[in-house]
Design a protein around this nucleic acid. Sequence first.
DNA 1: GGACTTGAGCCGTTCGTGCC
DNA 2: GGCACGAACGGCTCAAGTCC
Length: 354
Amino acid sequence: MTIRDVARLAGVSPATVSRVLSGSNHPVREDTRRRVLEAAQRLAYYPNRLARSLLRRETAVVGLLVPDVSNPYYAAVLRGIEDVAHQHGLAVILCNTDRDPAKQRQYLRTLLEHRVDGVVAAGGTLTVEDLRMVDGRVPVVAVGRHPARVPSVRVNNVEAARQACRHLLELGHVRVACLAGPASSLTARDRVRGYLAALREAGIQPDERWLVWSEFTAEGGYRATRELLARCRVSAVVASNDQMALGALRALWEEGLQVPEDVSVVGFDDTSAAAVSVPALTTVAVPTYEMGRRTLELLLAVRAGRRAANVVLPTELRVRESTAPPRKGQAAAVGDRAGRTQRPEGRERVCTHP
DNA sequence: GGACTTGAGCCGTTCGTGCC
DNA sequence: GGCACGAACGGCTCAAGTCC
């Protein structure tokens, strides 16, 4: 079914059908318009977007590169992006890169082959080489900080991590560990910088054993915590995201350590799981949905040739049940097997599983 | 006869132009 | 003002032509 079939049935030319159906300003007599609409409805016709994009040189499709679609952080960002895309009649192609540079480049190529109208990169993995590959053919914007310089929407991760760590220091903790995300991630590195800055400001010399690099997943947080417990004693942990914090809760529970009595835990992002985990997670709320919305608005602005300024959104510490002052005389007992409390018999602490 | 190049035609839609 | 005509968009296929 093509525009010609509609034109034939309505007794007009394809150009007139196009003008009626595309909402053109070109004048069309009312009875002609009605005939065209009736014919289109009778034939269940809808325009061919591929053919339209041939002439308009736009596909009404944008590409989104995401390191891990199963991460709730990116799910929330995607919601924001998708809502704005829908409002503007755009479709979104979602590409899960797994933080694999080769896979990311392959997807980028696929998006270019599909002649997308723009690319949004999330997760801090967009490189200068990637940008060279795009070569200005389509606008590229980013969620968060990336090695490649493109217009972006982000939060101040250094300051946010400093805020999270300072919260623990103000509670009286002096041995505070950090479960960092992958070292390749600028976001992870920024959060470590904030953590270290807060310690130094409090006059605490950071112990290198307190810092464990891992993946931005619950499994990563779990493994990092096990490694931390094997290394040294701490009384509090700053995790680089909520997933990692939930993994940490699981690892601590398995070791018979209570949160926050034995160890305080702070997460990052305030994903939906943070408020319903047991104990509810103290976390730094990142406006993920808003970041998604603003990023796509930024892309539309760049596409329209408007000046695009970077956007930095505020974060907020949400204090819940997973942080408390350290026990008296229990200056950082994690790792000290003799000092550990036993897991309560017959009463499991419910944690979200890694 | 095979390998390679060239050019026409196709797809569906939109837009500029010109006629009535 | 209202409408039709024809070119154009980009990438692909396929036929025709050329060369070795």
